[in-house]
Design a protein around this nucleic acid. Structure first.
Lengths: 155, 155
DNA sequence: ACCTATCATTGGTGCTCACCTATCATGCGA
DNA sequence: TCGCATGATAGGTGAGCACCAATGATAGGT
């Protein structure tokens, strides 16, 4: 019975590259979070829409599309799925009847709180090797990197 | 002519979550790197295989599969595409003729160096907001997070 | 010598994403 | 009032990815 102890070490040439580490840790974080949301029948975009509504109030669907950099036709589908469980409500804008204004319901707000808890749990799992101060440092650095992402190919 | 100045601010509820930042920055880094590699007809797995061969010497294809956590059948395809331009060579293992040993060629080593340069350029672009000391800190923190990723769902 | 496990290989499948087009209703300026 | 732009919606497409099944060759134990 050969113990099959093959070397699983990741090549240092890769781990020495910050983009590689970002990619891998990002993928792990995304996957873990998506798995949790999937348990409640939701995906990442659903959480993003709920968060946008919670933070900035009601949006026309086009506004959601712009804010989240998502295709307008995909906003329709996401809002459809959020309206199903009653997390959001659609209403025609009386001032411009082409627009559909999406509003967060109390149930939606509760759901978002639950999702945030899930995200916190994922954070604790992924950042387990770091102490609180280090986690704060990492978050601050990532925030600045994230803020600079806009002007990557479009300066 | 309406200036169409819609709010593009990302919801703070999201940016306050480290997993979200990790996911976004990771995706950006991955995308930028993939775009560069694509210019040379390669994808991320090609670079990973070249790096594994450079760091640990010749591998049987099964060893590559285990090390990189990739399906054996996908290793075949990646090695096919690397053998095309002559970046790697295949040879039957004389000691076990089922095995195919993959070896890095000088051309492959040169190619890997070029890819590493591309990765460095991506790093500089993505981490532009950070000074050298901060980049080092980020890299060190990510390294530790990455090292802890194995035991996420399998403790 | 036989039976089973391992390895490489081929070919295919399902999923998720991001994106694109066409259609219809509405608003607004010429 | 006509013509064009905008918003929402329905539906489709293609790339990338991870994964799976079947096949043929070879090893190795009993």
């Amino acid at each position: 019975m050969p113990m099959d102890a093959l070397d699983r070490t990741t090549p240092p040439t890769l781990t020495g590259l910050t983009p590689y580490l970002l990619s891998r840790t990002g993928k792990a974080a995304r996957g873990a979070l998506a798995a949790r949301l999937a348990e409640q029948g939701l995906r990442l975009w659903h959480m993003a829409v709920l968060a946008a509504l919670a933070d900035f109030g009601p949006h026309a669907q086009r506004e959601l599309a712009v804010r989240l950099s998502i295709d307008p036709s995909d906003v329709v589908k996401v809002v459809d799925e959020l309206a199903g469980p009653g997390y959001v409500e659609r209403a025609r804008d009386p001032g411009d009847r082409r627009r559909v204004v999406v509003t967060l319901t109390p149930a939606g707000r509760t759901a978002l709180a639950g999702l945030s808890d899930q995200a916190a749990a994922v954070r604790d799992a992924v950042l387990a090797p770091l102490d609180p101060a280090e986690r704060a440092t990492l978050h601050a650095l990532l925030s600045r990197v994230f803020a600079g992402l806009d002007g990557l190919s479009t300066p």
